[in-house]
Design a protein around this nucleic acid. Structure first.
Lengths: 185, 185
DNA sequence: GTCCTCATGTAACGGGTTACATGATTCT
DNA sequence: AGAATCATGTAACCCGTTACATGAGGAC
């Protein structure tokens, strides 16, 4: 049935921004959109090969003296069309797996200590995430000459922000509840 | 390295609540905690077999006239210990993949229509989720004779609630932004 | 001197989903 | 009559991560 993985469309999608190498794609994802996406080399390179075979992208070797050669990838018209097609399709509702919530759900009063510890770690992570997002946001807003699609970028960041805030609120509430439970014992 | 899957511990964890069959486990997950976890039969049954071989659970056949037989699973002391061990370990920070955010990030002004449609679907889903969570919450709160661990259950629901609210807020904001973009064209 | 970044690629492995097989009962 | 629920289990498949291989240049 060729259930096309999303990775395929991330690659095509990033190439609509500009031609780049597989390495660049990985880097872009890790640096710019890691708060809602991630890919490893082991999934990118084989797909690049496949997309080339399917005629959705073309690769052009770029040799730099004293540096490793790069394969610059570029969309073909066919690839652009495939991406547009995917773009118009409905997303399937995402089902999450939260190991933290699982642990909490399966908790009992005997492990309040480790629970509190994990919540504090979570809180710290989310706070860091939030400050990172806010920083990125102000960077985008001040850069006048940024991409014409920055409205969409800001939209994704806004969601990260709101959700991180909600999670921080929740973690604080939960820590308070646990503190009370400890006293009440 | 036997990177133990979480599924293993969900099974052990649910059996700390009460003995049940593989079918019950699936049902419980789908009905009670589907907003943060999911499992398919294809992952549960093979693991049940494995856990039995490892001596973490024992299975007892229960035959009912005119109904399919059930294998009632029960924790062994060893299984209880393994679960407690997992419970005390730190969770690894969860990395999400949001297809919706990916699509938005890769959008441009030419597909505002389909974007709005997808956001509306998302909004409807989240609203439904929220009302479901609120309903469950009030059910738990009114049931006096519920489990002693209901505080933890309520904690997980609270996170679902806060996050759903944040997402709803975001979706509404984003729809407003898109409406403006359409006009400004 | 060692580690990090650049740069591509493969192989092994792990884990989960979907679909199928089977079959009785109960709900619509 | 047909669909859904109860109940277990297997096989095919898909997909993605981790680790490895290779090697030069720059940073600390």
């Amino acid at each position: 049935m060729a259930r096309n993985s999303h990775t395929k469309y991330v690659i095509l999608g990033l190439l609509t921004i500009q031609p780049m190498s597989g390495y660049d794609i990985r880097k872009f994802i890790a640096e710019q959109i890691s708060f809602f996406w991630h890919e490893s080399f082991g999934s990118i390179y084989p797909l690049v090969k496949q997309l080339t075979e399917e005629g959705l992208i073309v690769s052009k070797r770029e040799d730099n003296p004293g540096r490793p050669g790069r394969n610059i990838l570029r969309l073909t018209p066919k690839g652009r069309k495939a991406f547009a097609q995917w773009q118009s399709e409905a997303v399937q509702s995402e089902q999450i797996k939260s190991e933290l919530l699982l642990k909490i759900f399966l908790s009992n009063r005997s492990n309040l200590g480790s629970l509190a510890k994990q919540l504090k770690t979570f809180l710290a992570e989310q706070s860091e995430q939030l400050s990172y997002l806010r920083q990125t946001k102000s960077q985008i807003e001040t850069e006048a000459g940024s991409s014409k699609n920055r409205a969409f970028w800001l939209m994704t960041i806004r969601r990260g922000e709101l959700v991180a805030e909600a999670r921080i609120k929740w973690a604080n509430e939960s820590l308070a509840t646990i503190a009370k439970m400890k006293q009440g014992k």
